[in-house]
Write a protein that binds this DNA or RNA. Structure first.
Lengths: 200, 200
DNA sequence: GCAAATTAATGATTTATTCAAG
DNA sequence: CTTGAATAAATCATTAATTTGC
């Protein structure tokens, strides 16, 4: 038969297994050298090129994030809805004074616990020179998002800025406070999360 | 259970979007008045207090710095150890492609698909009367107009980039069916080596 | 059972964003 | 302020799953 080569790479189960294992072990953005090694190794199980490996990690990482984001956002939303219904009236003026505020915010999308390095498949694909120093490379590339750290909060104490509730108290130094109109937002990164249209 | 569902603010996707947009637009340390306005506005999308806004900006800013610092040190470290490794093979070649593109596009008129805020959101939350220090925070680039046009560039097939064939061609999706052992990755030893990284 | 039709996954490309050096 | 390097996000396109009518 004519080769009729398919236009795109089709990973064999073995290749897929290995790639996934590598991913699980922490590899996210292999550099050229690593890609080279991985490709060479995987070529034993079937046709493959460097770009396939490169793309695979790109896609896998991206779709992982995507999945996580979707999940989190759904979760947040439900939580938020329930919370709003329950908490509507209560808990409104509880903290007029000092309440040790911490940095709130769950903003980060990814901070999921990354599986710790198993025996370390990654060592096999690190830049030449073996493990040692180079292994930091892999670690550093594992997850871009970082776990929040404690920040200095001293500046905030003794400030009155955040005492403003949204409630209609007499605004100390503010203007009429008209409700700004909604703007049609289209964020670059929250696309499928667009399920929210809760008014108030 | 007490009605207090959660002890901390949980931003809705809309709120998050808007906050991030503001941050992107240059707002870093809103003053009380700005916080007030922002809070009022965001309360339309869910429960929120002034302190949430304040903390959000604090945290976001701090984490930006943190990320920067981390990246810097990481980079220094890597620079030292990979002085002689050229490892940007893939990206390098990829970017050559992009160059071709962007030179071609000339960036004549911004992006298209993602309508940003119809107007500069940051203006709405600047100090009253305008001017002042804060105004320097705001980027002065306005959102580009749009051009939904799609470039019909000749597909640059023939990417010689990333070519890394490693063997004689074989059928696209055929698997060799050799029962080669998967090298040591099989999670037989899932111990925490611990010594793998964490260099700094 | 079995293809055509439809949908879901995922490989491959393109576009946008970020960070920092010049 | 501009630009290059790197990356992430969005999108295109093809293959695999699956559904469906016969």
């Amino acid at each position: 038969m004519s080769p009729a080569a398919s236009s795109r790479w089709c990973p064999t189960p073995e290749q897929l297994m290995i790639l996934e294992e590598m991913y699980r072990s922490g590899i996210r953005t292999p550099n050229a050298s690593q890609i080279q090694k991985i490709t060479t190794h995987l070529s034993f199980y079937g046709k493959i090129e460097g770009k396939n490996v490169f793309y695979w990690f790109q896609n896998h990482k991206a779709r992982d994030r995507q999945k996580l984001r979707r999940k989190l956002s759904r979760q947040l939303q439900l939580q938020q809805q329930q919370q709003q219904q329950q908490q509507q009236l209560y808990y409104y003026q509880l903290n007029q004074q000092n309440h040790q505020f911490q940095g709130y915010l769950d903003y980060s999308t990814g901070s999921s616990t990354l599986p710790q390095f198993p025996y370390d498949i990654s060592n096999s694909f690190l830049p030449q020179g073996g493990g040692g120093v180079a292994s930091t490379q892999v670690m550093n590339y594992t997850w871009k998002e970082d776990i929040p750290q404690r920040m200095e909060m001293e500046k905030m104490y003794g400030h009155d800025w955040m005492m403003m509730e949204t409630g209609p108290s007499s605004p100390p130094c503010a203007r009429p406070l008209q409700t700004l109109e909604l703007f049609p937002i289209t964020a670059t990164n929250l696309k499928e999360e667009g399920t929210t249209s809760k008014q108030f």
